[in-house]
């Protein structure tokens, strides 16, 4: 009996060890060490702001020290016609840019990684054989367990889109049974585009009921009926808050250092109230 009990205890102790495995993060066994030809190293590849998180890092770095003014100016689209080609900034936008740089560098304004973010994207949509643009306003929200997601706050339907009769049964299904698909990241909003294609509905991306206005329902009906298909994201603007300012970011894919996510406009919040 004593021997049996000892065996039992030893057996019990071994049970948790049965799940000890190598870490998943270890290099895969199928990683073949062959030199792939690599050689492109133009400066724009390092200089380009490829992701919004990269923009936030650079913004915060440029407001950390007193010499950040020039570095901040590099975050603007240098090809913007409103910024003088001769180096002299002369119009209202130029004045605003100067004021912005001065304010955020003096106050050492920091942009939070998980602060308020909104977006306005243009979707190329097909409807009965014709192509048009659907404008979608989005807001990034965070759940209680720290998950991020973009949700639709407003849509501007294409002008030519007619009213359609709602398929109530399908609408009910789309609104109540489909969970919000993961669409945390914003590069080209491909997950959103994919979701519209997969679900044929805006509903999984529009949890706020007050956002579902007449234009939203018009687009929703067209998607559900299959008459409208979302084909590509053709324009992409993101809005971030920085102190008393709202920054509009646009993506400039070009082969120069001043490229990627850059500031394309500024909005001074509470300008009159101050």
């Amino acid at each position: 009996m004593a021997t049996s009990m000892t065996n039992l205890w030893l057996f019990t102790l071994l049970v948790p060890l049965s799940e000890l495995h190598a870490q998943v993060a270890a290099p895969r066994a199928d990683t073949i060490k062959i030199n792939v030809r690599k050689g492109l190293s133009e400066s724009y590849m390092n200089g380009q702001i490829k992701h919004v998180s990269d923009f936030i890092n650079r913004f915060n770095a440029s407001t950390s020290d007193n010499a950040g003014g020039m570095r901040m100016f590099e975050l603007f689209n240098e090809d913007d016609q409103r910024l003088s080609v001769s180096g002299r900034i002369h119009d209202a936008y130029g004045y605003k840019v100067n004021l912005f740089i001065q304010t955020v560098t003096e106050k050492h304004t920091k942009m939070p990684k998980r602060g308020p973010v909104t977006a306005k994207i243009g979707l190329k949509v097909g409807y009965n054989g014709t192509l048009d643009t659907l404008t979608v306003h989005l807001r990034k929200d965070y759940t209680a367990d720290s998950a991020a997601y973009w949700h639709v706050t407003r849509v501007i339907a294409p002008a030519q889109l007619p009213e359609e009769k709602l398929n109530t049964r399908k609408s009910h299904s789309a609104e109540n049974k489909v969970e919000l698909p993961p669409n945390a990241h914003e590069v080209s909003f491909v997950p959103l585009l994919r979701g519209l294609d997969d679900y044929q509905s805006l509903a999984p991306f529009t949890p706020c009921l007050e956002c579902r206005d007449a234009a939203w329902r018009k687009v929703e009906n067209a998607l559900q009926s299959g008459r409208m298909t979302a084909e590509a994201v053709v324009s992409n603007k993101i809005y971030l808050a920085a102190g008393d300012w709202e920054i509009e970011l646009s993506e400039f894919i070009r082969e120069k250092e001043n490229s990627g996510w850059l500031i394309s406009d500024l909005i001074e919040k509470n300008a009159v109230m101050k």
Partner: peptide
């Protein structure tokens, strides 16, 4: 002939609703 830039730039990971 395919040539690559030295390293991929990876954005920060963010938790999704899934």
């Amino acid at each position: 002939e395919i040539t690559y830039y030295d390293a991929a730039v990876v954005s920060e990971f963010e938790k999704g609703t899934d």
